[in-house]
Amino acid sequence: MEWTGERIIPEQMKPTNGMLLEHLARYYFATPYVRGRVLDIACGTGYGTHMVAKTCKQDVEEVIGVDIDPETITYAKGQYYHPKSSFRVADALDPRLPEQLGRFDTILSFETIEHLSDDRLFMQHLWEMLLPGGTLVLSTPFGSGRGKPTTEPFHVHQLTPEEFADLFHAYSEVEIFYQRGVTIEPPRKGVRYPLGVAVCVK
């Protein structure tokens, strides 16, 4: 498998690669929220699923990494092993997804929603799969808004910060952070942030 710009393959990238560092930062940021049965949806090559299983081994029962691409999941299975992690092929928009995967204490979804034609259906699936009291950590890049063109070839659209915040109205607790490089923080006045990271409790 070769790194294409959207697929992060740490073994083929320089440790100083900015995109790799940004992706790793999101997983490290999520680790304090991770517990119980964990879903990493759109896990790509599996490095983050493995990192979470390894870093949070005392707090998790299992970590399941899911991706739509069979080749990517095959790579993940061959590259990353941990007794508490596993990988499987599934489609985030498949109506049977909640039935196939079950329910979780923690769901991680990093840089996924911008690739999906129906982000509302995806959010519905996440809600159905998250146990009461469970935590969702979700990130996405900001852009011109739902249904509007984006310069990123693999993105269907990129939500505005307002549209992003509106995704989580059903949750009992919502904290929205912003990412710039490897820094994930509450918003600071005068700083432009290209990405949002939401931490939500059902």
Rank of each mutant, 00 (worst) to 15 (best):
Ile113Ala: 10
Leu97Phe: 05
Met129Thr: 12
Val137Tyr: 04
Leu138Glu: 01
Pro132Glu: 14
Val137Asp: 02
Phe87His: 06
Pro95Met: 11
Phe122Thr: 01
Leu108Lys: 10
Trp127Ser: 15
Leu116Tyr: 10
Met123Gly: 05
Ser139Ala: 05
Thr106Trp: 02
Ser117Cys: 12
Asp105Ser: 15
Thr106Leu: 03
Asp91Ile: 06
Ala92Trp: 00
Pro132Ile: 08
Phe104Gln: 00
Thr140Tyr: 10
Arg103Cys: 08
Phe110Asp: 01
Ile107Asp: 02
Thr151Lys: 07
Asp91Ser: 11
Leu101Thr: 07
Ser144Asn: 13
Phe122Ser: 00
Thr151Ala: 13
Glu114Tyr: 11
Ile107Pro: 03
Ser109Phe: 01
Thr140Phe: 07
Gly134His: 02
Ser117Gln: 13
Gly145Ser: 02
Ile113Gln: 03
Ser86Gly: 06
Asp119Val: 06
Arg96Cys: 15
Thr150Cys: 08
Arg96Asp: 15
Leu126Ile: 14
Leu131Met: 10
Asp105Phe: 04
Thr140Glu: 01
Arg146Ser: 03
Glu128Pro: 14
Val89Ser: 12
Leu131Ser: 07
Pro98Leu: 07
Gly147Thr: 12
Phe104Asn: 10
Trp127Gln: 04
Leu108Glu: 05
Thr112Phe: 04
Ser86Ile: 00
Leu108Gln: 12
Phe110Cys: 08
Leu97Ile: 09
Asp119His: 08
His125Asp: 11
Leu97His: 06
Leu101Val: 08
Ser144Tyr: 10
Pro98Asn: 07
His125Pro: 09
His125Cys: 02
Leu121Cys: 03
Ile113Phe: 01
Pro98Phe: 10
Arg96Met: 15
Leu136Thr: 06
Pro98Val: 05
Pro141Ala: 09
Met129Pro: 07
Arg120Glu: 04
Leu126Gly: 02
Thr112Val: 14
Ser117Phe: 03
Glu99His: 02
Arg96His: 10
Ser109Asp: 14
Gly133Trp: 07
Val89His: 09
Gly145Ile: 11
Ile107Leu: 02
Arg120His: 13
Phe110Arg: 02
Arg96Thr: 13
Ser86Asp: 00
Ser86Arg: 07
Phe142Thr: 04
Arg103Val: 15
Leu126Arg: 00
Gln100Trp: 00
Gly102Leu: 09
Val137Trp: 05
Val137Leu: 12
His115Arg: 04
Gly133His: 03
Leu130Cys: 13
Thr112Gln: 00
Val89Met: 06
Leu138Ala: 11
Gly145Thr: 06
Phe104Ser: 03
Pro153Asn: 15
Glu152Ser: 14
Thr106Lys: 02
Met123Tyr: 05
Thr151Trp: 15
Phe110Gly: 09
Thr140Trp: 03
Val137Arg: 02
Ser109Glu: 02
Arg103Pro: 10
Asp105Arg: 01
Arg120Phe: 15
Leu108Asp: 06
Thr135Trp: 03
Pro98Cys: 01
Leu131Thr: 11
His115Tyr: 13
Lys148Phe: 09
Leu121Phe: 11
Leu116Arg: 15
Met129Ser: 00
Leu116Pro: 03
